[in-house]
Design a protein around this nucleic acid. Structure first.
Length: 642
RNA sequence: GCCGGGAUAGCUCAGCUGGUAGAGCAGCGCAUUCGUAAUGCGCGGGUCGGAGGUUCGAGUCCUCUUCCCGGCACCA
């Protein structure tokens, strides 16, 4: 005779087994209607689930994160049901919940079109309106396999075959459609009120590019219309942040057909790029790094020795010269830095030796992977290789980690996650060396006091790595920095130093990058700030504008003075209304607009307005310069606005 | 690389079933000298991504190809 304990601690006693639905009904008709599922002793179940023994029960509604997931999962089922009604020959496969929505993969003789999508969505609305009951039943493995085989659903039969023996096999039905599913699901299709199909795409069966391609339909689903509208609005806003769009609007860079995956930097974009390099250069110098520069093009034999040609060759650009030599354009900077290390005899006294380079590398990325500045074939790394003894690994890793996190904070990225990527299947070196490298990096992580998630099998081919992932203003994660412990390449490339006993020793090499790819980091900054780069990064920090030509002399003089102090300032003397000029420079995201009319000229002032439309009143050019200096030096932690 | 979609003026986009390319913004010229997100009038601007083909005739149809977009796979 079950006693059901509710989240508020109250208990209900029953003299017979009850369903979740019945308990909800006992509490109130409104709750019963809102109930999507139950959480019995922490486990999600259908509202039809029968509680036979004492249990804790929470009724799951659409206010619950789990409730929303159930809505999405059930909407995926609704999608599959609609597809089967419209295209009986399509075979169903899997339909999981993803962030903000769901997808379902189908095997079908042809790709679905956007017209199909509209028809499917309409059918889904119709089925939802019919408010069909969703029922669950359990079958044995053999029964289930036979059931789906008979329906011609060979993919489903294959999925069942891969379900562990001990797991129960449940089927969910609604109307005349049945799907294999773990559940739980909403009690009836009428609970699905706000959904939209968003796109179609190809996707490999079981995520393996050797398998056939299925037709994937993506959709989004929410508790109500309003949430759906908000989501669609969020998508639009995210699109406005797209760095490709901002790059064009602000005249920062462009790309063109003749150089796929490569960037043409315009003056303003390159200025920002140089600011990033200047900033990093300063930090690295302070931390004991020395900047070097290695050749872009080196004989292929060197890359053979390092293992790059074998493990990474598919992504390398090769070129044969008239003298019949085969060269490779560098895809990484490490072998070049090892050559610099090797030149001359190194003593243990020189370690750690930190060699840094803003190295431009070329990688032949798959055409389908290219994406604006985020994924290119030619990019610049803020790359450094630190040569150390094994005893120095921990201390150096701790120092690197600390600096990476400090630098991210300077850009306003405080929310940083760290992943530990261990040995990949395609690698050089013995397992014994990998054990040591992984242990060393783990020990260093502990010493640095950082927590990480394991990213299995994602290490570099020569060593394990820490990956630094930062979260931007709209909650997206970007992997940028990396720290790798390499016990393989120095030996392969013949690097050694002389230790305190005059013996030759192979150094350990740490690979580290903070921005990762400068191009990509630039793009992340643009999207993070929606183009409104902080003044210290902005290509133009202020524009001085006249109201009529009577102020031309004053505006010109003020502009010159500010420029001479190193500020990035331009003047706008065009014969246009001031409102027009304000609009243009605001759209160009210039942090400060300095207006000079007759009144300002007479009093030696500037009227200061921010790109966000805020009027900071008038101040002298000297005061503005002083305050801007503080803003730049503090990297935006203090602003002209105060 | 795979699946789908796309490429028309500097930008955003229209161009139905094949009949000889259009708008807004931007640009240029002229007028206007103006107080915080678009002053008015006028003018110029296109090998319709590239190469073949079908046709009396192709931006429109077919084939190939390049690049871009969205996914998938990949991302040392």
């Amino acid at each position: 005779m079950p006693v059901v304990t509710l989240p508020d601690g109250s208990q209900r006693r029953f003299d017979h087994p009850v369903t979740v639905d019945e308990v909800a009904a006992g509490i109130g008709a409104g709750l019963r209607k809102a109930a999507l599922a139950g959480r019995v002793n922490g486990k999600l179940v259908d509202t039809s689930y029968v509680i036979a023994d004492d249990a804790n029960l929470a009724i799951v509604t659409d206010k619950d994160a789990d409730g929303l997931d159930i809505i999405r999962h059930s909407t995926a089922h609704l999608l599959a049901q609609a597809v089967k009604e419209l295209f009986p020959d399509a075979q169903v496969t899997i339909g999981p919940v993803i962030e903000d929505g769901f997808y379902y993969d189908f095997a079908y003789e042809r790709p679905f079109t956007t017209e199909d999508l509209a028809a499917i969505e309409a059918k889904m609305a119709e089925l939802a309106k019919a408010d069909q009951k969703v029922t669950r039943r359990v079958l044995s493995r053999d029964e289930a396999v036979t059931f789906f085989r008979n329906l011609g659903e060979i993919y489903k039969a294959e999925i069942i075959a891969s379900i562990p023996e001990k797991e129960e096999i449940s089927l969910y039905g609604q109307g005349n459609w049945v799907d294999l599913c773990r559940g739980p699901h909403v009690p009836s299709t009428g609970k699905l009120k706000a959904f939209k199909l968003t796109k179609v795409a190809g996707a490999y069966w079981r995520g393996d590019s050797r398998n056939e391609m299925l037709q994937r339909i993506y959709g989004t689903a929410w508790a109500d219309r309003k949430q759906l509208e908000e989501y669609l609005h969020r998508l639009e806003e995210a699109e406005k942040r797209d760095h490709r769009r901002i790059g064009r609007e602000l005249d920062l860079f462009h790309m063109q057909e003749e150089a796929p995956g490569a960037v043409f930097w315009h003056p303003k974009g390159w200025r920002v790029f140089q600011t990033l390099i200047g900033f990093m250069r300063e930090r690295q110098r302070a931390a004991g790094y020395q900047e070097v520069n290695a050749p872009e093009l080196m004989d292929a034999t060197l890359w053979q020795q390092s293992g790059h040609l074998e493990k990474f060759g598919e992504s390398m650009y090769l070129t044969k010269t008239p003298d019949e030599r085969l060269y490779a354009i560098k895809p990484m900077n490490c072998p070049g830095h090892v050559q610099i290390f090797k030149h001359g005899l190194r003593s243990y006294r020189e370690l750690p030796l930190r060699l840094a380079e803003f190295g431009k590398v070329h990688r032949y990325e798959p055409s389908g992977a290219l994406h604006g500045l985020m994924r290119v074939r030619a990019f610049t790394q803020d790359d450094a290789h630190i040569f150390i003894t094994e005893a120095q690994i921990t201390a150096e890793c701790v120092a690197v980690t600390k600096q990476i996190l400090e630098i991210y904070a300077d850009f306003g990225f405080e929310d940083v996650r760290i992943k530990f990527a261990d040995r990949p299947p395609k690698r050089v070196g013995t397992d014994e060396v990998w054990d040591r490298a992984e242990e060393a990096l783990k020990a260093a992580s502990r010493a640095a006091g950082i927590e990480y998630a394991l990213n299995r099998g994602e290490g570099a081919f020569y060593g394990p790595k820490l990956e630094f992932v930062l979260r931007d203003a709209i909650g997206r994660d970007w992997q940028c920095g990396t720290l790798q412990v390499d016990l393989n390449l120095p030996g392969r490339l013949g690097a050694y130093y002389i230790d305190e006993h005059s013996a030759k020793r192979t150094p350990v090499m740490l690979h580290r990058a903070t921005f990762g790819s400068l191009e990509r980091f630039f793009a992340i900054l643009l999207e993070h700030h929606a183009g409104r780069l902080p003044a210290w990064l902005a290509p133009v920090q202020a524009v001085v504008l006249s109201i009529t030509e009577r102020q031309d002399g004053y505006v010109g003089a003020v502009t010159e003075t500010l420029k001479n102090q190193g500020f990035l300032v331009e003047s706008d003397l065009r014969n246009e209304k001031v409102g027009f000029k304000i609009r243009e420079h605001t759209l160009q995201r210039v942090p400060y607009l300095l207006v000079a009319g007759d009144k300002e000229v007479a009093a030696h002032l500037l009227s200061v307005r921010t790109r966000n439309g805020k009027d900071l009143g008038t101040m002298s050019p000297e005061t503005f310069a002083e305050r801007l200096r503080i803003e730049l030096d503090s990297r935006g932690r203090q602003t002209v606005e105060g």
